[in-house]
Amino acid sequence: METSKITAAEAISIVLGIFVAYTLVALPRSMLETTKTATLINLIYVGIIALLITFLIYKLLIKFPGSDIVDIAEYLGGKTLKTFIGIVFIFYFLFSSSILLRNFCECLKIVYYPMTSLIFILLTFIVVICITLHHRFSSIAKVNLFIIPLVIISIIFLFIANMKNFSLDNIFPIFGDGLFNTFVTGLGNLGAFGGITLLYFLPPYLKEPQKMKKIYLTSIILGTLYFLLCVSIILFMFISLMYTNQIMPLYSAARYIEFRKFFSKVRVHLPSYMDFTNGLLLNNCC
């Protein structure tokens, strides 16, 4: 596959694409299950940690200009380390994308295609992945640039449209199940920033390597803000008993949008965005 370079905006949108894909399935719910009403504080806390980790990654990669983690592993430990690191990352991407695909397809089956066998829904995505992998990486990045802003706008719309259903009492108690749960157990929410793994592989693809720091930090900051938005929607709308039982919490939140009669069924649009972003994530991982 031809290696072609991507711009800063495209790189940021690729990383955000991974964050977005996870949030649309079940990530907000799993975060809320862990830290309950303290999730917002916890998100800010893990966001700062993620920012620090990103900064460390940047510091590592800046020493090896134009190289990704596998090239660095080869430099440090020869072919053995390179192979090992490569296999680790391959398995990571394989498992994470497979699990995401499976989760998402199951949700789709439950909501829209109850009579359809799961394998057919899975195959649809797999066919799409196989087709898009024949194209350049920069093309996938460019599509991210079109789709991610639309998804973010739709989530903002979801937030604004549901504001009348918000209950600020839902954020109390503000530290949830306690400080230990919020700041120690809640470290598990760092997994939401799984998109950081992509940062290891971006340097060879960047058209402007001098902007690497800006790309990395902007991605994490925007990702954190995005998570805050998604979690806020669910936290303010639903009580804890409800959001722990939701299949796709954001989809459930969309069901409550009403602008007169016509816009009462806006939730149907959500899966389209989800299909896009899942396609993006799966392609990015591959």
Partner: peptide, 20 residues
């Protein structure tokens, strides 16, 4: 064949091919 899923994925492939 697939409703919005098919259209969304088709549009995704279409956009990638066009960007390529």
């Amino acid at each position: 064949l697939c409703g919005f899923l098919g259209i969304a994925l088709g549009l995704f492939v279409y956009m990638i091919a066009m960007c390529d």
